[in-house]
């Protein structure tokens, strides 16, 4: 199956699922509406189904250039995606400061930087610059994370 057709099938499936959900919206109290909350989504779903069928049926002319792929690249992207999820996970626990240092350090290592000093220094300096400008100049409140609150709660330092 060509890329076009595969993509068309994906969009076709998405449109069907989207339309199915749209059919089952709770009905709001009647105010003599000619268009309900589901009218627009249902027509979008119909349009999506028609267009994806056309893409599937009509002959395809490939114009776009496909991005390159290397095995090293695939591994790295996979690790980076995991790292971003990890960042979302730790920022709640450790707060901005520690998690950002962790995120950047691990990110640099995934991308092939080997010198630990460079990794750690770059990550820390960047984080400090960001932390200072966000909290001190722009007065944006950054949560210090649940762990530090827990620890300091135990120590009764608050």
């Amino acid at each position: 199956m060509s890329k076009n057709r595969f993509g068309a099938v994906v969009i076709f499936g998405f449109s069907i699922a989207y339309g199915m959900i749209a059919l089952h919206f709770p009905v709001p109290p009647a105010f003599n509406d000619s268009a309900s909350p589901s009218s627009f989504p249902i027509s979008l779903s119909a349009a999506g189904i028609i267009v994806s069928m056309l893409i599937f049926l009509l002959p395809a002319t490939s114009a776009a250039t496909t991005p390159e792929l290397t095995s090293k690249g695939i591994l790295r992207v996979f690790l980076l995606l995991l790292l971003m999820i990890f960042y979302g996970f730790v920022i709640k626990i450790f707060g901005f400061f520690v998690s950002t240092i962790l995120f950047l350090s691990i990110g640099f290592s995934i991308m092939g930087e080997r010198k630990l000093k460079v990794i750690f220094l770059t990550a820390t300096v960047t984080t400090i610059i960001f932390w200072v400008s966000l909290t001190q100049f722009l007065k944006i409140y950054l949560d210090s994370g649940s762990l530090s609150k827990f620890v300091f709660g135990l120590l009764n330092l608050d």
């Binding site: 450790f94 520690v98 909290t135 210090s144």
Partner: peptide, 21 residues
């Protein structure tokens, strides 16, 4: 890690009694 936690905590938390969030 604990050093950073300590530092960041002290930089963020204000020990004043009269503090509101």
């Amino acid at each position: 890690v604990t050093t950073f936690l300590l530092v960041s905590h002290y930089l963020i938390a204000d020990t004043q009694v009269h503090r509101l969030h």
